[in-house]
Amino acid sequence: MNNNKIYPIYFTFGMLFIYSIFVFLPGLIGIFYSFTDWNSFSDELNFIGLENYKTILKGDPIYLFYIGNTVKFTLLTTIIKTLIGFVLALVMINKNVRFRNIHRTIIFSPQVLSFLIVGLIFRSILHPSKGFLNTTLEAMNLGFLAKNWLGSIDWAFFSVIAVDIWKGVGYIMVVLIAGLNSIPQIYHEVAQIDGAGFFRRIIHITIPLLMPSITVVTVLNITYGLRVFDSIYVLTNGGPGYATGVVNTAVFKEFSKGRFGLGTAMSSLLFLFILLISYFLIKGLNKKAVEY
């Protein structure tokens, strides 16, 4: 039988068409424009080669600051989410913990809310004078701990990271629970008979066998962190000053200033970086995975 007849290629045309026009084409146009001085002030479009990229990487140090912030955000959220997610997942597979399904439902629930909603919730909760956090701290006579969480240069970045972890850690937990459940119980039983304690079993059995899930979680966290925009846009819009600015909020700023060429150059750099890093992560971490 002829496969091309049974599985006609026109079945794919619908998605190919919409994807090409509304996702791929804008991406391509964007890369093209990143080599031009396209902006909203003049109708003339000049090809300027790598000039935009030079501005970002060597020109104004603010761009390097944004890139640094993005990397800092990505590393911190990835490490903290993975650690907390791992501990939560271990707790959730412990049969002695009651109401595990309810806890899992609650901890995962922020994941299904809109970034916008989460942002608005925390802008209310973290409001310096009327918010829940500071008024509660004051009511407990811990008023000295109250901070201007989102409005001070010292705390805004920390607060944004904390909110992001609150929203996303449930997802990481759920992926790791699935990974832990797929590890055959027999390994733990044998190790226990051999006298391996809880932490030794974690380090020598659980973590190596969980490597595929940890790879997935790391790739998810890193690609998410590098692209973060929504939550920062709603919480602080990159402020105060530049304190919480990341690449994508900077791209947004360039676009609203009408410097389209520079904005698309930043966007393209980020894309290239994400592709490279995912490729090497998947390759590198998979090598460490143990077959069983």
Partner: peptide
């Protein structure tokens, strides 16, 4: 179902979109 060279290419071409940033102005 039909993993011809062309179809494999179409698959990767589209899945690439998962990592692609949206260029809002374009």
């Amino acid at each position: 179902r039909n993993k011809t060279k062309l179809n494999q290419f179409i698959y990767f071409f589209i899945v690439l979109g998962i990592a692609m940033p949206i260029n809002y102005i374009a």
